[in-house]
C-alpha cells in the first residue's frame, strides 16, 4: 500500500512539474492560467491521494483538502483571467477569435 501511495505522489509531482514547464512555455497570461489551473489541480489531487494511501488515518482531512482545492482553484483562476482581460492585458498574437471584445462595448465604457 505504501508503494502504491508513493507512486501516486510521484505522479502528482510529475504533473506539477509539467505545469511549471507550461507556465514558462505558454505565450500569454490566459494560456498560462489554463495550464496552471488544470495541471496544478490534478497534481495536488494525486499527491494528496497518495498520502491517503500511505497514511489512511488522515483520509478525512485529506479528502476535505482535495475538495477545497477542487472548488477554489477554478474560482481564483476565473477571477484572475477576468481581471487580466478588463485591464486590457493583450492576448497572444496566435489568438484566432475574441468574442468578448466584439460584444462588450457597453461594459468597456463602465470599465473606463
Amino acid at each position: 500500500m505504501e508503494l502504491v501511495g508513493a507512486i501516486f505522489t510521484l505522479i502528482g509531482a510529475l504533473v506539477l512539474l509539467v505545469a511549471s514547464i507550461g507556465l514558462i512555455r505558454m505565450p500569454d497570461v490566459y494560456n498560462r492560467l489554463q495550464v496552471g489551473t488544470k495541471a496544478s489541480t490534478l497534481g495536488t489531487i494525486f499527491s494528496l491521494f497518495g498520502l491517503v494511501l500511505v497514511n489512511p488515518g488522515w483520509a478525512g482531512k485529506l479528502i476535505l483538502l482535495i475538495f477545497f482545492v477542487m472548488m477554489t482553484n477554478p474560482v481564483s483562476s476565473h477571477v484572475l483571467a477576468r481581471a487580466a482581460y478588463f485591464i486590457k492585458i493583450p492576448l497572444t498574437r496566435r489568438t484566432v477569435v475574441d468574442k468578448l471584445k466584439v460584444s462588450d462595448s457597453a461594459l468597456k465604457v463602465k470599465a473606463d
Binding site: V18, P27, Y30, K38, T41, L42, V96, V97, D98, L100
Partner: peptide
C-alpha cells in the same frame, strides 16, 4: 478533469506548442 490534464500535458510537452487560443 483527468482527460483535460492529459490534454494539457500533451500540449505543453510537444515541441511545436500546438495551441490555437481564442475567446468564444
Amino acid at each position: 478533469l483527468i482527460k483535460s490534464n492529459l490534454d494539457v500535458i500533451k500540449r505543453v510537452l510537444s515541441p511545436s506548442l500546438p495551441i490555437n487560443p481564442g475567446i468564444v
